[in-house]
Design a protein around this nucleic acid. Structure first.
Length: 493
RNA sequence: GCUCCGAUGGUGUAGUCCGGCCAAGCAUUUCGGCCUUUCGAGCCGACGACCCGGGUCCAAAUCCCGGUCGGAGCACCA
Protein backbone atom coordinates (compact mmCIF):
# COMPACT_ATOMS: atom_id res chain seq x y z
CA UNK A 1 0.00 0.00 0.00
CA UNK A 2 1.39 3.38 -0.97
CA UNK A 3 0.85 6.44 1.15
CA UNK A 4 -2.04 7.65 -0.98
CA UNK A 5 -3.76 4.34 -0.80
CA UNK A 6 -3.34 4.22 2.95
CA UNK A 7 -4.85 7.62 3.42
CA UNK A 8 -7.72 6.72 1.10
CA UNK A 9 -8.40 3.58 3.10
CA UNK A 10 -8.24 5.40 6.38
CA UNK A 11 -10.46 8.10 5.01
CA UNK A 12 -13.05 5.55 3.98
CA UNK A 13 -13.00 3.38 7.07
CA UNK A 14 -12.23 5.84 9.83
CA UNK A 15 -13.33 9.27 8.66
CA UNK A 16 -13.30 10.58 12.20
CA UNK A 17 -9.66 9.77 12.55
CA UNK A 18 -8.52 12.14 9.85
CA UNK A 19 -10.99 14.89 10.50
CA UNK A 20 -10.63 15.06 14.21
CA UNK A 21 -13.42 17.39 14.99
CA UNK A 22 -12.24 20.87 15.60
CA UNK A 23 -13.42 21.57 19.10
CA UNK A 24 -14.76 25.05 19.04
CA UNK A 25 -14.90 25.95 22.64
CA UNK A 26 -17.36 28.66 23.16
CA UNK A 27 -16.72 30.76 26.17
CA UNK A 28 -19.72 30.82 28.38
CA UNK A 29 -20.19 32.64 31.61
CA UNK A 30 -20.91 30.44 34.63
CA UNK A 31 -24.45 30.20 35.88
CA UNK A 32 -25.46 32.49 38.71
CA UNK A 33 -26.29 31.10 42.12
CA UNK A 34 -29.83 31.13 43.40
CA UNK A 35 -31.71 32.14 40.32
CA UNK A 36 -35.44 31.76 40.83
CA UNK A 37 -37.25 33.14 37.83
CA UNK A 38 -36.18 36.52 36.60
CA UNK A 39 -33.16 38.41 37.82
CA UNK A 40 -32.80 42.08 38.67
CA UNK A 41 -29.34 43.47 38.11
CA UNK A 42 -27.73 46.84 37.80
CA UNK A 43 -24.79 48.81 36.64
CA UNK A 44 -23.96 51.83 38.66
CA UNK A 45 -21.43 54.24 37.20
CA UNK A 46 -20.75 57.63 38.69
CA UNK A 47 -21.39 60.43 36.24
CA UNK A 48 -17.87 61.80 36.37
CA UNK A 49 -17.37 61.36 32.64
CA UNK A 50 -18.20 59.13 29.70
CA UNK A 51 -17.84 55.37 30.03
CA UNK A 52 -14.47 53.80 29.30
CA UNK A 53 -13.33 50.31 28.42
CA UNK A 54 -13.24 49.37 32.11
CA UNK A 55 -16.92 50.18 32.56
CA UNK A 56 -17.77 48.07 29.55
CA UNK A 57 -16.99 44.90 31.48
CA UNK A 58 -19.51 45.75 34.16
CA UNK A 59 -22.13 46.62 31.59
CA UNK A 60 -21.58 43.55 29.42
CA UNK A 61 -21.51 41.04 32.27
CA UNK A 62 -24.73 42.33 33.78
CA UNK A 63 -26.35 42.55 30.37
CA UNK A 64 -25.35 39.00 29.49
CA UNK A 65 -26.99 37.57 32.58
CA UNK A 66 -30.17 39.57 32.20
CA UNK A 67 -30.34 38.32 28.63
CA UNK A 68 -29.79 34.75 29.79
CA UNK A 69 -32.34 34.68 32.59
CA UNK A 70 -34.67 37.49 31.66
CA UNK A 71 -35.47 40.30 34.04
CA UNK A 72 -34.40 43.84 34.60
CA UNK A 73 -31.18 45.71 34.07
CA UNK A 74 -31.16 48.97 35.97
CA UNK A 75 -28.84 51.78 35.07
CA UNK A 76 -28.27 53.62 38.30
CA UNK A 77 -26.38 56.85 38.05
CA UNK A 78 -24.62 57.47 41.33
CA UNK A 79 -24.37 61.22 41.61
CA UNK A 80 -24.16 61.69 45.34
CA UNK A 81 -20.81 63.43 45.25
CA UNK A 82 -21.69 66.82 43.76
CA UNK A 83 -18.05 67.79 43.62
CA UNK A 84 -17.29 65.16 41.01
CA UNK A 85 -20.01 65.26 38.40
CA UNK A 86 -19.71 65.97 34.71
CA UNK A 87 -23.19 67.18 33.72
CA UNK A 88 -22.74 65.76 30.20
CA UNK A 89 -22.34 62.27 31.61
CA UNK A 90 -26.08 61.97 32.30
CA UNK A 91 -26.58 62.07 28.54
CA UNK A 92 -23.44 60.35 27.43
CA UNK A 93 -23.59 57.25 29.62
CA UNK A 94 -26.88 55.99 28.14
CA UNK A 95 -25.49 56.71 24.66
CA UNK A 96 -22.36 54.72 25.39
CA UNK A 97 -24.45 51.82 26.66
CA UNK A 98 -26.72 51.92 23.66
CA UNK A 99 -23.70 51.70 21.39
CA UNK A 100 -22.46 48.70 23.36
CA UNK A 101 -25.80 47.01 22.81
CA UNK A 102 -26.58 47.02 26.51
CA UNK A 103 -30.24 47.71 27.13
CA UNK A 104 -31.18 49.01 30.51
CA UNK A 105 -34.83 48.58 31.37
CA UNK A 106 -34.86 51.42 33.85
CA UNK A 107 -32.74 54.45 34.65
CA UNK A 108 -32.45 55.55 38.26
CA UNK A 109 -30.67 58.70 39.31
CA UNK A 110 -29.68 58.77 42.94
CA UNK A 111 -29.99 62.49 43.41
CA UNK A 112 -33.72 62.01 42.77
CA UNK A 113 -33.91 59.73 45.77
CA UNK A 114 -32.45 61.82 48.57
CA UNK A 115 -35.59 61.62 50.68
CA UNK A 116 -35.42 57.84 50.61
CA UNK A 117 -31.90 57.98 51.96
CA UNK A 118 -32.84 60.46 54.65
CA UNK A 119 -35.74 58.29 55.74
CA UNK A 120 -33.55 55.26 56.00
CA UNK A 121 -31.00 57.29 57.95
CA UNK A 122 -33.67 58.34 60.43
CA UNK A 123 -34.80 54.75 60.67
CA UNK A 124 -31.31 53.51 61.52
CA UNK A 125 -30.83 56.29 64.04
CA UNK A 126 -34.07 55.34 65.76
CA UNK A 127 -32.98 51.73 65.90
CA UNK A 128 -29.70 52.85 67.44
CA UNK A 129 -27.58 51.74 64.50
CA UNK A 130 -26.39 55.16 63.41
CA UNK A 131 -25.05 58.25 65.12
CA UNK A 132 -23.97 61.78 64.35
CA UNK A 133 -20.32 62.39 64.94
CA UNK A 134 -18.60 65.74 65.22
CA UNK A 135 -15.12 64.49 66.04
CA UNK A 136 -12.05 65.68 64.19
CA UNK A 137 -11.36 63.40 61.25
CA UNK A 138 -7.92 62.38 62.46
CA UNK A 139 -9.15 61.78 65.96
CA UNK A 140 -11.98 59.61 64.73
CA UNK A 141 -9.69 57.52 62.53
CA UNK A 142 -7.21 57.01 65.30
CA UNK A 143 -9.86 55.77 67.70
CA UNK A 144 -11.30 53.47 65.07
CA UNK A 145 -7.96 51.88 64.39
CA UNK A 146 -7.70 51.10 68.10
CA UNK A 147 -11.31 49.93 68.35
CA UNK A 148 -12.17 52.79 70.71
CA UNK A 149 -15.65 54.31 70.62
CA UNK A 150 -15.97 58.05 70.26
CA UNK A 151 -18.24 59.84 72.77
CA UNK A 152 -20.99 60.32 70.17
CA UNK A 153 -21.43 56.61 69.69
CA UNK A 154 -23.42 56.27 72.89
CA UNK A 155 -25.67 59.29 72.41
CA UNK A 156 -29.38 58.45 72.52
CA UNK A 157 -31.40 57.97 69.33
CA UNK A 158 -33.61 60.92 70.27
CA UNK A 159 -30.67 63.26 70.58
CA UNK A 160 -29.12 61.90 67.36
CA UNK A 161 -32.37 62.45 65.51
CA UNK A 162 -32.40 66.08 66.64
CA UNK A 163 -28.81 66.52 65.55
CA UNK A 164 -29.58 64.92 62.20
CA UNK A 165 -32.31 67.47 61.46
CA UNK A 166 -29.95 70.24 62.49
CA UNK A 167 -27.43 69.07 59.96
CA UNK A 168 -30.11 68.98 57.28
CA UNK A 169 -31.05 72.52 58.25
CA UNK A 170 -27.55 73.74 57.68
CA UNK A 171 -26.37 74.27 61.20
CA UNK A 172 -23.07 72.56 60.50
CA UNK A 173 -20.40 73.37 57.96
CA UNK A 174 -18.71 70.78 55.74
CA UNK A 175 -16.36 68.64 57.81
CA UNK A 176 -18.08 69.41 61.06
CA UNK A 177 -20.47 66.49 61.20
CA UNK A 178 -20.98 63.08 59.62
CA UNK A 179 -23.51 60.32 60.10
CA UNK A 180 -21.94 57.03 61.02
CA UNK A 181 -23.30 53.51 60.72
CA UNK A 182 -22.43 51.32 63.67
CA UNK A 183 -20.91 47.98 62.83
CA UNK A 184 -18.44 46.37 65.20
CA UNK A 185 -15.60 48.42 66.60
CA UNK A 186 -13.60 45.25 67.18
CA UNK A 187 -14.18 43.91 63.68
CA UNK A 188 -10.88 42.33 62.64
CA UNK A 189 -11.01 44.14 59.33
CA UNK A 190 -10.47 47.80 60.18
CA UNK A 191 -12.13 48.90 56.98
CA UNK A 192 -15.43 47.39 58.09
CA UNK A 193 -15.58 49.13 61.45
CA UNK A 194 -18.08 52.00 61.93
CA UNK A 195 -18.23 53.73 58.58
CA UNK A 196 -19.38 57.09 57.34
CA UNK A 197 -22.83 57.12 55.81
CA UNK A 198 -23.38 60.83 55.14
CA UNK A 199 -21.17 63.85 54.88
CA UNK A 200 -21.84 67.54 54.32
CA UNK A 201 -21.06 69.03 50.93
CA UNK A 202 -21.92 72.51 49.79
CA UNK A 203 -20.76 71.94 46.23
CA UNK A 204 -23.24 72.90 43.54
CA UNK A 205 -25.10 69.85 42.27
CA UNK A 206 -25.75 70.02 38.52
CA UNK A 207 -29.29 68.75 38.93
CA UNK A 208 -30.35 70.11 42.31
CA UNK A 209 -28.03 73.02 42.95
CA UNK A 210 -27.88 73.68 46.66
CA UNK A 211 -31.12 71.99 47.59
CA UNK A 212 -29.26 69.31 49.55
CA UNK A 213 -26.18 69.58 51.69
CA UNK A 214 -26.02 66.24 53.50
CA UNK A 215 -25.12 63.62 50.92
CA UNK A 216 -25.04 59.85 51.42
CA UNK A 217 -21.79 58.05 50.84
CA UNK A 218 -21.79 55.37 48.23
CA UNK A 219 -21.98 52.52 50.74
CA UNK A 220 -25.17 53.87 52.20
CA UNK A 221 -27.07 54.79 49.06
CA UNK A 222 -25.98 51.61 47.33
CA UNK A 223 -27.25 49.38 50.11
CA UNK A 224 -30.56 51.22 50.33
CA UNK A 225 -31.09 51.20 46.58
CA UNK A 226 -30.01 47.63 46.06
CA UNK A 227 -32.76 46.67 48.43
CA UNK A 228 -35.45 49.09 47.30
CA UNK A 229 -34.88 48.27 43.64
CA UNK A 230 -35.11 44.56 44.38
CA UNK A 231 -31.66 43.50 43.19
CA UNK A 232 -31.25 39.74 43.05
CA UNK A 233 -27.64 39.63 41.88
CA UNK A 234 -24.87 42.17 42.06
CA UNK A 235 -21.80 41.94 39.87
CA UNK A 236 -19.00 44.41 40.28
CA UNK A 237 -15.26 44.79 40.59
CA UNK A 238 -13.14 43.25 43.30
CA UNK A 239 -12.36 46.70 44.66
CA UNK A 240 -15.83 46.60 46.19
CA UNK A 241 -15.33 43.50 48.30
CA UNK A 242 -14.90 45.45 51.51
CA UNK A 243 -17.75 47.73 50.55
CA UNK A 244 -19.98 44.71 50.26
CA UNK A 245 -19.07 43.75 53.81
CA UNK A 246 -19.99 47.21 54.99
CA UNK A 247 -23.23 47.32 53.07
CA UNK A 248 -24.34 44.01 54.52
CA UNK A 249 -24.88 45.72 57.86
CA UNK A 250 -27.67 47.85 56.42
CA UNK A 251 -29.35 44.69 55.19
CA UNK A 252 -28.82 43.01 58.52
CA UNK A 253 -30.29 45.86 60.57
CA UNK A 254 -33.40 45.94 58.40
CA UNK A 255 -33.67 42.21 58.05
CA UNK A 256 -33.55 42.62 54.27
CA UNK A 257 -32.72 39.72 52.01
CA UNK A 258 -29.23 39.94 50.57
CA UNK A 259 -28.59 39.80 46.83
CA UNK A 260 -25.98 37.35 45.56
CA UNK A 261 -22.69 39.18 45.18
CA UNK A 262 -19.97 38.59 42.61
CA UNK A 263 -16.68 40.41 42.35
CA UNK A 264 -14.56 40.07 39.26
CA UNK A 265 -10.82 40.70 39.31
CA UNK A 266 -9.21 43.99 38.53
CA UNK A 267 -8.00 44.65 35.03
CA UNK A 268 -4.87 46.58 34.34
CA UNK A 269 -4.99 48.63 31.17
CA UNK A 270 -1.39 49.28 30.30
CA UNK A 271 -0.57 52.53 28.61
CA UNK A 272 -4.17 53.66 28.39
CA UNK A 273 -5.29 56.80 30.14
CA UNK A 274 -8.61 56.15 31.86
CA UNK A 275 -8.54 58.34 34.92
CA UNK A 276 -11.18 61.00 34.55
CA UNK A 277 -9.30 63.59 36.57
CA UNK A 278 -6.27 63.33 34.29
CA UNK A 279 -8.40 63.39 31.16
CA UNK A 280 -10.38 66.40 32.31
CA UNK A 281 -7.22 68.28 33.03
CA UNK A 282 -5.76 67.24 29.67
CA UNK A 283 -8.83 68.40 27.78
CA UNK A 284 -8.84 71.69 29.64
CA UNK A 285 -5.19 72.45 28.91
CA UNK A 286 -5.35 71.27 25.31
CA UNK A 287 -3.29 68.10 25.69
CA UNK A 288 -6.27 66.08 24.48
CA UNK A 289 -8.72 67.04 21.76
CA UNK A 290 -11.67 65.73 23.81
CA UNK A 291 -13.04 62.59 25.43
CA UNK A 292 -12.65 60.80 22.09
CA UNK A 293 -8.97 61.67 21.70
CA UNK A 294 -7.23 58.76 19.98
CA UNK A 295 -4.88 58.27 22.93
CA UNK A 296 -7.67 57.67 25.45
CA UNK A 297 -9.57 54.53 26.39
CA UNK A 298 -13.11 55.90 26.39
CA UNK A 299 -15.84 54.07 24.54
CA UNK A 300 -16.20 57.22 22.46
CA UNK A 301 -12.61 56.77 21.33
CA UNK A 302 -13.05 53.10 20.44
CA UNK A 303 -16.16 53.99 18.54
CA UNK A 304 -14.34 56.68 16.63
CA UNK A 305 -11.58 54.21 15.84
CA UNK A 306 -14.18 52.01 14.22
CA UNK A 307 -14.36 49.15 16.67
CA UNK A 308 -17.33 46.85 16.69
CA UNK A 309 -19.22 46.95 20.00
CA UNK A 310 -19.50 43.17 19.68
CA UNK A 311 -15.77 42.96 20.30
CA UNK A 312 -16.27 44.21 23.85
CA UNK A 313 -18.90 41.60 24.47
CA UNK A 314 -16.73 38.77 23.21
CA UNK A 315 -13.73 39.94 25.12
CA UNK A 316 -15.47 40.27 28.45
CA UNK A 317 -17.33 37.01 28.10
CA UNK A 318 -14.03 35.29 27.48
CA UNK A 319 -12.54 37.03 30.51
CA UNK A 320 -15.24 35.59 32.71
CA UNK A 321 -16.02 36.57 36.26
CA UNK A 322 -13.22 35.12 38.31
CA UNK A 323 -11.57 37.09 41.04
CA UNK A 324 -8.22 36.99 39.32
CA UNK A 325 -6.54 40.23 38.40
CA UNK A 326 -5.43 40.39 34.81
CA UNK A 327 -3.92 42.57 32.20
CA UNK A 328 -6.14 43.78 29.40
CA UNK A 329 -4.82 42.05 26.31
CA UNK A 330 -5.09 44.64 23.60
CA UNK A 331 -3.56 42.06 21.28
CA UNK A 332 -6.46 39.65 21.72
CA UNK A 333 -8.94 42.49 21.67
CA UNK A 334 -7.62 43.64 18.30
CA UNK A 335 -7.65 40.11 16.94
CA UNK A 336 -11.27 39.65 17.95
CA UNK A 337 -12.25 42.89 16.31
CA UNK A 338 -10.41 42.03 13.13
CA UNK A 339 -12.23 38.73 12.90
CA UNK A 340 -15.55 40.53 13.25
CA UNK A 341 -15.03 43.37 10.83
CA UNK A 342 -12.75 41.92 8.17
CA UNK A 343 -15.39 40.04 6.14
CA UNK A 344 -17.21 43.26 5.35
CA UNK A 345 -14.40 45.75 5.35
CA UNK A 346 -13.38 47.10 1.99
CA UNK A 347 -9.80 47.52 0.94
CA UNK A 348 -8.11 50.73 -0.07
CA UNK A 349 -4.58 51.73 -0.90
CA UNK A 350 -2.82 54.12 1.41
CA UNK A 351 0.84 54.83 0.86
CA UNK A 352 2.66 56.15 3.90
CA UNK A 353 5.74 58.26 3.34
CA UNK A 354 5.33 58.05 -0.45
CA UNK A 355 7.95 58.18 -3.21
CA UNK A 356 6.94 58.70 -6.81
CA UNK A 357 8.23 56.23 -9.38
CA UNK A 358 7.75 55.98 -13.15
CA UNK A 359 6.73 52.74 -14.82
CA UNK A 360 8.93 52.84 -17.91
CA UNK A 361 7.84 50.85 -20.90
CA UNK A 362 4.36 50.03 -19.70
CA UNK A 363 1.32 49.82 -21.95
CA UNK A 364 -1.93 51.60 -21.08
CA UNK A 365 -2.76 50.49 -17.55
CA UNK A 366 -6.45 50.30 -16.57
CA UNK A 367 -6.58 48.09 -13.52
CA UNK A 368 -9.83 46.78 -12.06
CA UNK A 369 -9.31 46.20 -8.35
CA UNK A 370 -11.55 44.15 -6.10
CA UNK A 371 -12.63 45.99 -2.98
CA UNK A 372 -12.45 42.75 -1.03
CA UNK A 373 -10.62 39.53 -1.92
CA UNK A 374 -13.62 37.30 -1.26
CA UNK A 375 -16.65 39.46 -0.53
CA UNK A 376 -17.91 40.28 -4.03
CA UNK A 377 -20.72 42.45 -2.71
CA UNK A 378 -18.20 45.13 -1.92
CA UNK A 379 -17.58 45.61 -5.65
CA UNK A 380 -14.50 46.84 -7.42
CA UNK A 381 -12.85 50.02 -8.58
CA UNK A 382 -11.12 51.05 -11.78
CA UNK A 383 -8.33 53.45 -12.61
CA UNK A 384 -7.24 54.71 -16.01
CA UNK A 385 -3.58 55.39 -15.54
CA UNK A 386 -2.56 55.72 -19.17
CA UNK A 387 0.80 54.95 -20.74
CA UNK A 388 3.91 54.73 -18.57
CA UNK A 389 2.25 56.27 -15.52
CA UNK A 390 3.84 57.53 -12.36
CA UNK A 391 2.65 56.03 -9.08
CA UNK A 392 3.41 56.39 -5.40
CA UNK A 393 4.87 53.56 -3.34
CA UNK A 394 5.93 53.45 0.30
CA UNK A 395 9.47 54.69 0.73
CA UNK A 396 10.32 51.95 3.19
CA UNK A 397 9.37 49.28 0.66
CA UNK A 398 11.11 51.05 -2.19
CA UNK A 399 14.31 51.32 -0.20
CA UNK A 400 14.20 47.65 0.72
CA UNK A 401 14.09 46.61 -2.92
CA UNK A 402 17.48 46.23 -4.49
CA UNK A 403 18.66 47.32 -7.90
CA UNK A 404 17.35 45.01 -10.62
CA UNK A 405 14.91 43.24 -8.29
CA UNK A 406 11.48 42.35 -9.59
CA UNK A 407 8.42 43.18 -7.55
CA UNK A 408 4.70 43.53 -8.10
CA UNK A 409 2.42 46.50 -7.69
CA UNK A 410 -0.65 44.79 -6.32
CA UNK A 411 -3.47 44.35 -8.83
CA UNK A 412 -1.47 46.34 -11.40
CA UNK A 413 1.71 44.87 -12.86
CA UNK A 414 5.16 43.44 -12.26
CA UNK A 415 8.12 45.75 -12.58
CA UNK A 416 11.85 45.81 -12.00
CA UNK A 417 13.66 48.47 -10.03
CA UNK A 418 16.31 50.39 -11.92
CA UNK A 419 17.85 53.25 -10.01
CA UNK A 420 15.12 55.86 -9.48
CA UNK A 421 12.50 54.28 -11.70
CA UNK A 422 11.10 50.93 -12.76
CA UNK A 423 10.95 48.94 -15.96
CA UNK A 424 7.66 47.30 -16.84
CA UNK A 425 7.79 43.49 -16.99
CA UNK A 426 4.23 42.15 -17.25
CA UNK A 427 0.63 42.73 -16.32
CA UNK A 428 0.12 39.22 -15.09
CA UNK A 429 2.04 37.82 -12.16
CA UNK A 430 5.16 36.15 -13.45
CA UNK A 431 4.71 33.12 -11.26
CA UNK A 432 7.83 33.97 -9.36
CA UNK A 433 7.42 34.72 -5.69
CA UNK A 434 8.14 38.41 -5.53
CA UNK A 435 7.42 41.18 -3.07
CA UNK A 436 3.99 42.68 -3.56
CA UNK A 437 3.35 46.24 -2.49
CA UNK A 438 0.48 48.67 -2.63
CA UNK A 439 0.57 51.84 -4.71
CA UNK A 440 -1.40 55.00 -5.35
CA UNK A 441 -2.04 56.86 -8.63
CA UNK A 442 -0.33 60.16 -9.29
CA UNK A 443 -3.51 62.16 -8.57
CA UNK A 444 -3.93 60.73 -5.05
CA UNK A 445 -4.59 63.13 -2.21
CA UNK A 446 -2.74 63.75 0.99
CA UNK A 447 -3.95 61.76 3.94
CA UNK A 448 -3.02 61.42 7.58
CA UNK A 449 -3.71 58.77 10.16
CA UNK A 450 -3.87 59.44 13.87
CA UNK A 451 -2.45 56.60 15.89
CA UNK A 452 -3.16 55.68 19.53
CA UNK A 453 0.37 56.46 20.63
CA UNK A 454 -0.10 60.02 19.45
CA UNK A 455 1.99 59.60 16.31
CA UNK A 456 0.51 60.81 13.03
CA UNK A 457 1.36 58.93 9.83
CA UNK A 458 1.34 61.05 6.69
CA UNK A 459 0.91 59.72 3.18
CA UNK A 460 -1.37 59.58 0.17
CA UNK A 461 -4.76 57.93 -0.29
CA UNK A 462 -5.99 56.62 -3.63
CA UNK A 463 -8.59 58.91 -5.27
CA UNK A 464 -11.52 56.58 -4.70
CA UNK A 465 -10.89 56.73 -0.99
CA UNK A 466 -11.81 60.39 -1.03
CA UNK A 467 -15.54 59.89 -0.58
CA UNK A 468 -15.39 56.76 1.52
CA UNK A 469 -16.23 56.98 5.23
CA UNK A 470 -15.98 54.18 7.74
CA UNK A 471 -13.50 51.44 8.45
CA UNK A 472 -11.31 50.21 5.63
CA UNK A 473 -8.39 47.88 5.49
CA UNK A 474 -5.59 49.99 4.11
CA UNK A 475 -3.75 47.13 2.53
CA UNK A 476 -0.44 46.17 4.07
CA UNK A 477 -0.77 49.10 6.46
CA UNK A 478 -3.62 48.65 8.95
CA UNK A 479 -7.35 49.05 9.49
CA UNK A 480 -8.45 52.62 9.96
CA UNK A 481 -11.70 54.52 10.34
CA UNK A 482 -11.85 57.17 7.65
CA UNK A 483 -13.41 60.27 9.12
CA UNK A 484 -12.94 62.77 6.32
CA UNK A 485 -11.31 63.08 2.92
CA UNK A 486 -7.94 63.57 4.53
CA UNK A 487 -8.00 62.02 7.99
CA UNK A 488 -8.55 58.67 9.68
CA UNK A 489 -8.36 57.20 13.16
CA UNK A 490 -6.15 54.15 13.36
CA UNK A 491 -8.11 51.02 14.31
CA UNK A 492 -5.46 48.32 14.51
CA UNK A 493 -3.12 46.29 12.36
C1' G B 1 0.93 47.16 59.86
C1' C B 2 -4.28 45.02 59.75
C1' U B 3 -8.29 42.34 56.86
C1' C B 4 -9.43 39.71 52.61
C1' C B 5 -8.34 37.49 47.92
C1' G B 6 -5.66 35.14 44.13
C1' A B 7 -1.57 32.16 41.46
C1' U B 8 -2.49 27.29 34.42
C1' G B 9 2.44 28.76 28.28
C1' G B 10 4.67 35.77 26.30
C1' U B 11 -0.76 37.28 26.74
C1' G B 12 -6.20 36.11 27.68
C1' U B 13 -8.69 31.89 29.31
C1' A B 14 -10.95 26.26 30.00
C1' G B 15 -10.45 22.62 33.72
C1' U B 16 -10.20 23.35 40.32
C1' C B 17 -16.43 23.06 43.88
C1' C B 18 -17.62 16.71 43.15
C1' G B 19 -9.20 13.88 42.54
C1' G B 20 -8.88 9.51 37.58
C1' C B 21 -11.59 10.60 30.43
C1' C B 22 -5.74 16.41 31.70
C1' A B 23 1.30 13.11 29.32
C1' A B 24 -3.78 19.82 30.32
C1' G B 25 -8.37 22.25 25.71
C1' C B 26 -9.26 27.05 23.12
C1' A B 27 -7.73 31.89 21.50
C1' U B 28 -3.79 35.32 20.63
C1' U B 29 1.43 36.28 19.81
C1' U B 30 5.93 34.25 17.56
C1' C B 31 7.94 30.91 13.96
C1' G B 32 7.35 27.63 9.58
C1' G B 33 4.45 26.02 5.33
C1' C B 34 0.42 26.69 1.68
C1' C B 35 -2.17 30.24 -1.22
C1' U B 36 -0.83 32.91 -9.43
C1' U B 37 -8.12 37.38 -7.59
C1' U B 38 -1.25 37.87 -5.74
C1' C B 39 -3.09 41.14 1.36
C1' G B 40 0.61 42.56 7.35
C1' A B 41 -5.86 38.87 4.87
C1' G B 42 -7.09 33.51 4.71
C1' C B 43 -5.83 28.19 5.43
C1' C B 44 -2.50 24.43 7.67
C1' G B 45 1.31 23.20 11.16
C1' A B 46 4.93 23.93 15.19
C1' C B 47 7.05 25.99 19.78
C1' G B 48 5.17 27.09 24.58
C1' A B 49 2.04 26.43 31.10
C1' C B 50 -0.44 23.70 36.16
C1' C B 51 4.36 29.35 41.67
C1' C B 52 7.64 26.38 45.28
C1' G B 53 8.08 22.58 49.21
C1' G B 54 5.80 18.91 52.02
C1' G B 55 1.41 15.70 53.05
C1' U B 56 -3.13 12.49 51.96
C1' C B 57 -4.26 8.89 48.13
C1' C B 58 -3.69 3.27 43.84
C1' A B 59 -4.18 8.29 41.55
C1' A B 60 -3.43 15.58 42.65
C1' A B 61 -3.63 21.35 38.18
C1' U B 62 -7.74 19.68 41.31
C1' C B 63 -7.81 18.04 48.53
C1' C B 64 -4.64 19.56 53.25
C1' C B 65 -0.37 22.27 55.53
C1' G B 66 3.75 25.69 55.06
C1' G B 67 6.29 29.21 52.09
C1' U B 68 6.94 32.68 47.94
C1' C B 69 4.97 36.15 44.79
C1' G B 70 1.01 39.32 43.25
C1' G B 71 -3.51 42.16 44.12
C1' A B 72 -7.56 44.79 46.70
C1' G B 73 -9.37 47.55 50.84
C1' C B 74 -8.21 50.22 55.46
C1' A B 75 -11.25 58.20 52.14
C1' C B 76 -16.16 63.28 54.79
C1' C B 77 -14.52 59.06 46.08
C1' A B 78 -17.45 55.68 43.51
Amino acid sequence: MGPDEISRTVEKKYPDFLHKEKKIQEHRLPDLRNVTGKVVMRMAPSPSGPLHVGHSRLAILNDEYVKRYGGELILRIEDTNPANIDPNAYEQIPKDLEWLGVNSTQIVIQSDRMDLYYNEARNLIKLGFAYLCTCETEDFKKKLSKSIACPHRSVSPEENLKQFEKVLNGEYAPGEAVLIVKTQLDHPNPSVRDWIAFRISEANHPRYGHKYRFYPMMNFSVAVDDHLLGLTHVIRGKDHINNTERQKYIFLYNNWELPEYYHYGLVDFPQVVLKTSIIKKGIADGTYTGWDDIRLGSLMTFRKRGFSPETFRRYWIESGMREIDSEFSIEIFYAMNKELIDPETRRLFFVPDPVKIKLNGSPELNPVIQNHPSNRELGSRTYNLGLEPEVFVPKADWDSISEGEEFRLKDLCNVKKTQDRTEFISMEPSGKRVKIIQWCPKNSHEFRIMKPDGVVDHGVMEPQGKEFRGVAQLERYAYANILSSNEAYFTHK
